[in-house]
Nucleic acid binder design. Sequence first.
DNA 1: CGAAACGACTAAATCCTTTTAGTTTAGGAG
DNA 2: CTCCTAAACTAAAAGGATTTAGTCGTTTCG
Lengths: 330, 330
Amino acid sequence: MTLSLKEIAEIAGVSKTTVSMVVNGRGEHYRISAETREHVMRLVEEYGYSPNAQARSLRLRKTQTLGVVVPGLVNRFFAEFAERFDGAARAQGYQVFLTATNDDLPTEIEVVKNLLSRNIDGLVVASADSAGRWTPSNKYLAIPRVYIDRLVARPEASWVVSDDYDGAYRLVDELCRRGAREVYYIGGGPRISTSMDRRRGVQDALQTHRLEQRPEQILERGYDFRDGYAMAQQLHDQHPTPPEALFTGSMTLFEGVLQYLQEQAPLWLEHTRFATFGKQPMLDYLPGSIISAHQDVEKMVEATLELLLRQISGDTEIQQIKIPLKFVFR
Amino acid sequence: MTLSLKEIAEIAGVSKTTVSMVVNGRGEHYRISAETREHVMRLVEEYGYSPNAQARSLRLRKTQTLGVVVPGLVNRFFAEFAERFDGAARAQGYQVFLTATNDDLPTEIEVVKNLLSRNIDGLVVASADSAGRWTPSNKYLAIPRVYIDRLVARPEASWVVSDDYDGAYRLVDELCRRGAREVYYIGGGPRISTSMDRRRGVQDALQTHRLEQRPEQILERGYDFRDGYAMAQQLHDQHPTPPEALFTGSMTLFEGVLQYLQEQAPLWLEHTRFATFGKQPMLDYLPGSIISAHQDVEKMVEATLELLLRQISGDTEIQQIKIPLKFVFR
DNA sequence: CGAAACGACTAAATCCTTTTAGTTTAGGAG
DNA sequence: CTCCTAAACTAAAAGGATTTAGTCGTTTCG
């Protein structure tokens, strides 16, 4: 059993107000004699009193709590983001509710609603739906929030994303510089902003290099491992010989592709040049040619937390930040 | 602005009690006429009322909140555990506070204290210190909790861990069956239970196969990438030719080792047989011989949540569960 | 007919803090 | 001696829910 403020006050023989003042040390227009302060403090320590956060935040209308909603944690980018964000937020006195939605919009909506009813102070979302095709509640619209990774069209709000267009462009540009004349594209769901931007980047780079773009060179499905596997299969079926170059929109997709190729078309692993989004230490040890681009997690965390805290402290300005990717040209 | 129960009651022209009853539908010894119920419900929908979780849990002494404390999320096992646990807990109506401690005991203690002051209903910890060399508060001792991955000596409590001893034994056994006569061990910090068990497994397997065990064959440091790198270096310095077999205690360690070997001793990658704990899809595409064992996350999540919920519902029995590992003998 | 039972509500207490608006005591100024 | 002020506290309200213990008519039963 933990004691309450009231009980401490009774034991100490002072009022609740006094104990509260001592514990919070907020002596604005109140003074407490050194004697009393010490007396109360001793009891607080002795009984290991710490304020009940429920009651506290009920009164203060502040929970010192943030919500982070991501598609999944097995995805290394989100894992790293979550881990760093958690640490940074904690350093600022916030505890984090972290939730994975599995990229499912109904789940996302349910989770956000739950978080809102818990009166979180701020919200970070990598949304499953960039188009914003659901009607947010007033409470949702009122809460400080930052979208990450994928920008969201509606409601108009702050976001921190990577420069996906530029990343895709430069990856494909590099493939071409290295001699590729035929680049295939395997990407995530066309309703997610990252997919759209990456695809545009790829296409513009091909255009710059005056390379042909046939519709069957563009495959889009989802960001899942199985999507990667399936698209590799589809590609292989329609084009049995190894293409010169293959671009995948995420590490998970790349893993799916790899799985298929190893099983059904190992020749590709030797002859095709790969470019992919995502980070993975083991890429360095794979045979074959692989270049990659990954998000600058540290900068993103920093920017996200700053935007969020600024909103929490009352600033209503909307800010939208695009962060450059990092490239590994092996 | 969201309305409160009181305001809804005023608009509806009924008491707070009635609204509360309608919303929670807990008509044990209270009845509410269909008419009133419908009337109130309409207003609740219209204004999008949902109860304030702070106030609710203050009264109920239940927060429908669980804490999960892990060393880090970039580690795939913890990421997968967290993701699945989050989903399973949400299905049971709990929201999860997830925190990464970076395997730092002071951080762990601080985080747990914070979670306790928020009155979480249950706690899951992969502790940075298996020896239990800190004094837990009464509140900590009283809260339903389950240790995972690493068991904790004190306080006596429920845990769900993998059968590390067996896993290490069988990996090394397999190495020996495949002809290895000399196995080196690279492991995590000797104060963490998983390290201790894995080491014992390795040593017992060597003994079974009547293989020599020199002290310099056993390296222990920590579970970090850099630890792996450093131990590989140390090993290479004292033994420049590729050893027949090398065991690493985690995927992160293996990655560190790989990094060093690729830079300084690429020959090893061809000639040494590797065995490692951990899961990583890309292992399948690496050249060389690698066998591995990884935790059965699904079963662990299931067991952990069940033990926790049972404790929350009042069962005080301590249960300690060891779950078999999964092996991939490539 | 009187008492008990029941249906349909409501008032007020409770959970634990924070904070506003006092209250009490002592000392100094006039 | 009275009045005022400062120092050091305290009482009570507020914050938003749940729940115990009623209240007040209307039926039902003996």
